[in-house]
């Protein structure tokens, strides 16, 4: 990764292929979520809290794979899901600087999305910001504006004691045993016991959504089995 501060002078002629943005996350098994997208994300992925290794603090994230560096939603060409998290859609752009609220927009100059044949431009013919880059700006702004609220949401979950460590212990169809650790989720018994300590209705719905989203683990297992089946297919002689 090579982050550069985005500028008209340096990047005015750049063309981007937004479809390739997902490839940047092809090797991510976890993607951090913003509080504002938890409800949509909960429809597609199992959501957990995970610990930032640098600070030990929790943040919400969608689980995309069952192993480190595995993204079962990336099919080789596209990120296939009904909802694509903001932190994937905004790629290859980042917010630079220590404080996200004050941050400037940066681009990863090494990104695979930078493509002379790409459909999107940063600056339109008439010299104005393109609709594409305005969309990116809106996403980055939403992420940074809700950064603190997201951290606060995670702190609240930990403070109330809603989180339990969830160890995934899975045996795949081909017999492989998989253990996934380091995930903290909201289980129904804990949520029921602590429900009255959650003060706002909005938070109640978000915690409920996160609790229900755990059912999507079975979806991940299904994807993983399907992928393994495809990988194993070369050994099966073609019919006829």
């Amino acid at each position: 990764m090579r982050l550069q501060q985005l500028s008209r002078a340096a990047h005015g002629d750049l063309r981007i292929d937004p479809r390739k943005a997902g490839s940047e996350a092809a090797n991510n098994h976890l993607v951090p979520l913003s509080r504002i997208e938890l409800r949509q994300a909960a429809r597609c992925f199992p959501l957990f809290f995970v610990k930032d290794l640098e600070t030990g603090q929790f943040y919400p994230a969608a689980l995309l794979g069952l192993k480190a560096n595995e993204n079962l939603f990336w099919d080789g060409d596209a990120f296939v899901a009904d909802y694509i998290p903001l932190n994937i859609r905004r790629l290859p752009f980042y917010i630079g600087g220590d404080d996200p609220a004050q941050g400037m927009i940066c681009i990863d100059a090494d990104s695979a999305c930078i493509d002379p044949q790409g459909a999107s431009r940063i600056v339109d013919e008439d010299g104005t910001d393109s609709a594409y880059i305005r969309g990116i700006q809106a996403m980055l702004a939403a992420l940074s504006q809700n950064h603190e609220a997201t951290s606060e949401f995670a702190r609240e979950a930990a403070r109330i004691g809603l989180l339990s460590e969830i160890k995934l212990d899975i045996v795949l169809d081909d017999g492989e045993a998989i253990n996934v650790a380091g995930l903290y989720g909201i289980d129904d018994r804990t949520l029921e016991r602590k429900f009255d300590e959650i003060t706002s209705f909005e938070e109640k719905t978000l915690f409920m959504a996160m609790m229900l989203s755990l059912d999507h683990v079975s979806g991940l297992v299904r994807r993983k089995n399907a992928r393994n089946e495809v990988l194993a297919a070369w050994r099966v002689p073609a019919a006829g």
């Binding site: 610990k51 600070t55 030990g56 603090q57 929790f58 930990a158 004691g161 339990s164 460590e165 903290y184």
Partner: peptide
Amino acid sequence: TKLGQYEFQKI
């Protein structure tokens, strides 16, 4: 030093 700023989680 880090512990001055961040805390250990309960779990």
